[in-house]
């Protein structure tokens, strides 16, 4: 464990907590893409298959449980909670995210480190996570007014993967044989997808104006 990875995990945890806080306290999911939340629940479900088979550390198991429970409960809130579901704007959240699942799965079948079920599901979760934010970014472009919590949520989600890139660089230089192109490239693609959001988020913060994404 290095500081970059710990910071990355804490930032990721913060993004999930910000979202849960928003949904639970103000009972609203305005501006949040259910499709991105469903994709993230699938990412965690396919990535943490080894939750009960490989014990790495208490921290690792605990964080996996937190991410699994939080992502599925967010999906439940938006789908079924009698008040929250009313604020879900399904007419705007129209990204056909199922079109993301199949290509990622096919790619995982072709490009992976080992042709086993667990490894293919793990690789699938990496590719899927890289594109999972797309429905949310599309929704942000459509709903002009991005409230603070939603903006912070997306920012933290992008920041966590950026910190992971620093973690991979650190591990590459400090650990022999630590070379994982699949993880690095999908992590890089994921972070690049946030690039323009980061730019506008930083501009709004610097000029102290409301976050607006160009149509």
């Amino acid at each position: 464990m290095n500081i970059f990875r710990l910071a990355g995990d804490m930032t990721h945890l913060a993004s999930v907590l910000v979202l849960l806080l928003k949904i639970h306290t103000i009972k609203s999911c305005a501006g949040i893409s259910l499709k991105t939340q469903e994709l993230y629940a699938l990412v965690f479900a396919t990535r943490y298959l080894d939750l009960f088979t490989d014990y790495i550390s208490l921290y690792n198991t605990l964080m996996k449980l937190i991410f699994l429970v939080s992502s599925f409960s967010i999906v439940w809130y938006i789908r079924h909670h009698k008040i929250v579901r009313r604020s879900y704007d399904k007419d705007q959240d129209t990204f056909r995210h199922y079109f993301l699942v199949l290509p990622c799965f096919l790619l995982a079948l072709v490009i992976n480190e080992k042709f086993t079920v667990k490894e293919i599901m793990w690789t699938f979760s990496l590719y899927l996570e890289a594109v999972a934010i797309l429905p949310q970014l599309v929704l942000l472009q459509r709903t002009r007014n991005i409230d603070n919590l939603t903006g912070q949520y997306v920012f933290l989600l992008g920041a966590y993967r950026s910190l992971y890139i620093l973690n991979w660089i650190y591990r590459y230089f400090t650990e022999p044989h630590y070379v994982h192109w699949i993880t690095w490239i999908s992590g890089l693609v994921q972070t690049l997808l946030y690039a323009d959001f980061f730019y506008y988020y930083f501009q709004s913060w610097k000029n102290n104006v409301k976050l607006e994404l160009p149509a």
Partner: peptide
């Protein structure tokens, strides 16, 4: 062991 170590990240 290498595979086991490989998935030590979240």
């Amino acid at each position: 062991m290498e595979t086991f170590l490989y998935h030590d990240e979240l």
